[in-house]
Design a protein around this nucleic acid. Structure first.
Lengths: 195, 195
DNA sequence: CTCGTAAGGTACGTCGCGTACCCTATAGGG
DNA sequence: CCCTATAGGGTACGCGACGTACCTTACGAG
């Protein structure tokens, strides 16, 4: 009858189905049977491509996130940083973010998978964005050149992540974001002027 | 025959059995049937006390951790901070830490349980220790009084935590700890001198 | 002594992962 | 143009583990 799908075509269909399940119900509900049914195939086809559920979940995640990478330019370092942090907070507290956190938890004991997640979640791109933001601040004379450092750039995001790990998940309140910037990030940037 | 255990006595037996399972095989292997068998009872007695596996795991965790809280006094802020961070890294990379991380992952969607974990994991005590360490540095004239701030005190630990979330689990290499102190914590403390 | 409460024993429903087996279409080479 | 290796389809199942149901048995308080 209808031509039987193969290779690339089938693979895309499976990924699409898995992504839909992720979007609608989250990782916990993304069962292998449901994905197979939704893709109009069976678990065999899936297990031939991915060794287990977690791998499929991670592979499917990229179909969700179009990774809207913000690049705010408010004129001040404080404004830019707050804006980026707020954006990150919004992403992490959205359904997307919930899925991402669940995937992280599921892959927590497998470094291979963790790398895959980092790759697909756009974390590296995010880190670069913070660095260029710092460079702009240096150009404006708002920050010392020594402030352009990976650890400095990633600190606010790291703190936000840790905040998520501690609390439950509604989302981190804005006061906390402001505090991260005003009490940690900006003092840190200033402090790097005088070694 | 032998007098049947009840109430408090039985409860302790269950917690002890669960803790042993946690120590020997980790949270993933701590199955309800095994705990029941090891405690010489059955699942009924467990489910009458804790609603689900995660709750039992968290309750049992306190039997593991004797919470060795370090209070180093090396004479310098840098020395103290590094020591505390190293201690934390060691704890988190030990079997204990693995259990704790697994519990965190399991409770990640239940704020009630997260609070319980924070309580039992000695996180608050740890935070206080960092604060008093900062106060000592202020007394020595090594840090400005404005550096004594909760966000400042918790930053290194938060960064370490986030580091764990990103990588797999062997343990965080010492260079990273040094970098957290030298490139973030100390500059931050300095930077808080000049608002 | 009796009666409610809690423990013991056991079996079961359910769910979801991962696997096994066998059949069927299809692509690609001879 | 056929034929065979390969991959997809269908289905069933083993298994582990959670959580529940139901009955029986000890214990302690009145």
């Amino acid at each position: 009858m209808s031509t039987r799908r193969r290779g690339e075509e089938l693979e895309q269909a499976i990924l699409h189905a898995a992504a839909e399940e992720l979007r609608e119900s989250g990782y916990a509900e993304m069962t292998m049977d449901r994905v197979a049914a939704r893709a109009g195939t069976n678990k065999n086809a899936i297990y031939r491509r991915w060794p287990h559920r977690a791998a499929l979940g991670i592979a499917a995640y990229r179909h969700l996130s179009d990774a809207v990478m913000p690049n705010p330019d408010t004129g001040t370092l404080r404004g830019d940083a707050l804006e980026m942090l707020r954006q990150a907070n919004q992403t992490w507290s959205s359904p997307h973010g919930t899925v991402l956190r669940d995937l992280l938890a599921a892959a927590a004991d497998d470094p291979t998978l963790l790398d895959l997640i980092r790759e697909r979640s756009g974390a590296d791109t995010m880190d670069r964005a913070w660095l260029t933001m710092l460079e702009r601040a240096v150009a404006r004379g708002e920050a010392p050149p020594t402030a352009v450092h990976p650890r400095v750039a990633t600190t606010p995001i790291m703190l936000l992540r840790a905040e998520y790990a501690m609390r439950g998940f509604p989302s981190v309140p804005d006061e906390v974001l402001v505090e991260i910037i005003d009490e940690v990030f900006l003092p840190l940037v200033r402090g790097r002027a005088h070694p």
